[in-house]
Amino acid sequence: MASEAVLKYLEDTNRPYSCADVTVNLRGAYTKTAVQKALDGLAESGKIKCKLYGKQKVYVALQRDVATGDCEIEDFDAQLKRLVEDLEEKTKSLKTAETNLKNLTSTPTTDYAKKSITEISRNIDAMGKKLEALKSSTEVISADEKKTILNEHEKQLKEYRKRKRICNDMLEAVLEGYPKPKKTLLEELCIETDEMVDFKPMAVS
């Protein structure tokens, strides 16, 4: 029966556990509902002790063969309280770490960002050279051709700004858990910003 298995487990381990802990540690032999019912029944019968910390119940077996004084019980209660507080703190840290991991995994990888930056830089250089050639050319082009060229330039410029923003968002996300300054991170990733290389996208009117 669940009651016998739960009582034996608590007596063997001689440590405080919540209902969820006992259910997991019994390797799914009984459902959480069955374990909770067993714990409540054992507590009511005086075979185990139940302590309430906030909204969480913690159970521990009463070792009949050990004479426990009031001072020892108080020390054990204090230990239980510390363990519960430590568990709550670690749970909060775990949730924070899971949130940070989710944010990082939802953004493009560093390799993808570096390849994108390289590709964008090549496109910008090519478009810049083409634009300079057109500006210096004495060949007259039609208004429609000029409009097409300017529209394409504007399209590329918007794409460049969009990808730059994505890259900056990635860096900011990494910096949230990075112990060193942003400059150090950029050096380790071999990333050069527009400001570092004095690059200024050309806006054509």
Results as ranks from 00 to 15, higher is better:
Asn25Gln: 09
Glu187Ser: 08
Lys162Cys: 02
Lys182Gly: 01
Asp111Ile: 02
Glu88Asn: 12
Lys158Leu: 10
Ala38Met: 07
Cys71Trp: 10
Asn103Asp: 04
Leu39Val: 00
Glu187Ile: 05
Thr31Leu: 04
Leu185Ala: 12
Lys32Glu: 03
Asn14Phe: 10
Lys183Val: 09
Ile48Ala: 02
Thr109Tyr: 08
Met170Asp: 01
Gly177Met: 05
Ser205Asp: 08
Arg122Thr: 11
Asp144Trp: 06
Asp65Asn: 13
Lys49Ile: 11
Thr31Val: 00
Leu186Val: 04
Leu62Asn: 12
Glu187Thr: 12
Lys130Thr: 06
Val6His: 03
Lys49Trp: 07
Pro179Phe: 07
Pro16Gly: 13
Lys147Thr: 03
Lys155Ile: 01
Leu189Trp: 12
Thr193Gln: 06
Ile120Phe: 14
Ser142Ala: 07
Val60Tyr: 05
Lys95His: 09
Ile48Cys: 06
His153Ala: 05
Cys50Glu: 05
Thr110Leu: 14
Tyr59Gly: 03
Lys57Asn: 06
Gly177Arg: 15
Asn100Phe: 11
Lys164Ile: 03
Lys130Arg: 09
Ser205Arg: 13
Glu192Asn: 15
Glu119Met: 12
Gln156Glu: 04
Arg122Asn: 13
Gln56Asp: 15
Lys55Glu: 07
Met170Tyr: 11
Glu139Asn: 07
Glu44Phe: 09
His153Val: 01
Tyr17Ser: 05
Gly41Asp: 09
Pro16Arg: 11
Tyr53Glu: 04
